[in-house]
Simulated assay, not measured.
Amino acid sequence: MSQAVTGSTMLRRQLGRKLESLRKAAGLTMEKAAEELDRARATLYRIESGAENVRFRAADVKEMLKLYGASEEDTELVLAMASATRENKNWWHDYIGSGLPRWFQLYIGLEAAASSIRQYQAELVPGLLQTRAYAEQLFRMPGGAIEAGDREGQERAIQLRVERQALLTRFSAPQLSVIINEAVLRRPVGGATIMTEQLHQILKAAELPNVTVQVLAFSSGLHAGAMAGAFSILEFPRDSSGKEVEPPVTYLEAATGAIYLDKPHETDAYNTIWTDIASRALSESKSKSLIQHVAEEYSRA
């Protein structure tokens, strides 16, 4: 997959397609719309293509929405998307050059554009659910993406991890489905106090309507995830007809790089693995009970 496919790129494509569908619903050809908007046809084409050199100014977008007779709901959605392309475009770029690996930059962009994220973690709490204290312990470990002596780089990486979590409560937040191995709960990272806080953070996140957390208990026995290791499956918004616009991406991370898989047979393989893991995991309510139980054990330690 090309590194050029970022969250901003996908958002622009989605916004362009939405404006195109509204224009067509209004019965306007591109030529007629361009004439009414006093724009060149080529300009309108770039807008509907989501070209990188187009700035979706609020006044311009409102003019188009008015011409197309967009509903109040569509107007709210399109203006929010247009605002996101201007204000939140590649917000993580502030962290580039301070230890953030280039292979991870692509993941952040995909994560920001996803409508659905499914993650299996065998060893660690997923980044979107980590507390700052937990993340600090991870970035101090040798062999990570940030060099051990790069304190500034570590701090910026920790801050990035914390800021990424706003994804879960933003406008049009993705659906996050997490399955964690029981070992994630049982293995102390940084001591009992940090783990108590971390497990409470997971429980708090699980209360969000777009977040589900399940635990793969030790009693589940052998499962497909034991062979696959940790992975994330990201899916993206579909167009108005329900057609897949961007293919799903499976993300696999290692200490020195990452693999992005988007071929149909690769997606099918990891969907099969996910289905097996999900069928063996505890229900959401039983998972919450186990997480709460382990948190109480840490609080008494």
Rank of each mutant, 00 (worst) to 15 (best):
V184E: 06
E152C: 04
A254H: 12
G257Q: 05
S8H: 11
K18E: 10
Y45A: 12
D94I: 07
R57P: 00
R41Q: 13
A114W: 04
A258D: 10
G190C: 00
A4D: 09
E152N: 04
T212N: 13
S285K: 15
R140D: 14
T250W: 03
K204P: 00
T85Q: 10
A59P: 01
L282G: 04
R161Q: 10
D60Q: 13
I146H: 05
E36G: 00
V245F: 01
A70K: 12
P188H: 11
E244F: 02
R140P: 00
V184W: 06
Q154I: 12
L77Q: 10
E111H: 05
M30A: 09
Q14W: 00
P264I: 04
S220W: 04
V294Y: 02
F171N: 02
R280K: 15
L216F: 08
V213I: 13
L282T: 03
R140V: 00
A148D: 12
T75K: 11
T85H: 10
A217M: 03
T267P: 00
D60M: 10
A80D: 12
L22G: 05
R12Y: 09
I179P: 07
G143D: 08
A278P: 01
A145D: 06
E73N: 10
L79E: 12
S232F: 01
E76L: 11
E87P: 02
A59N: 10
P209D: 09
M10T: 08
D239C: 05
R140Q: 14
Q198D: 05
D94V: 14
S8D: 13
T75S: 14
I202D: 07
M195A: 04
A301I: 03
A224H: 02
E235T: 13
G97C: 11
H293C: 01
G127V: 07
S241K: 12
T275H: 11
A148K: 13
A226S: 11
A80T: 11
E296N: 14
P101R: 10
L67W: 13
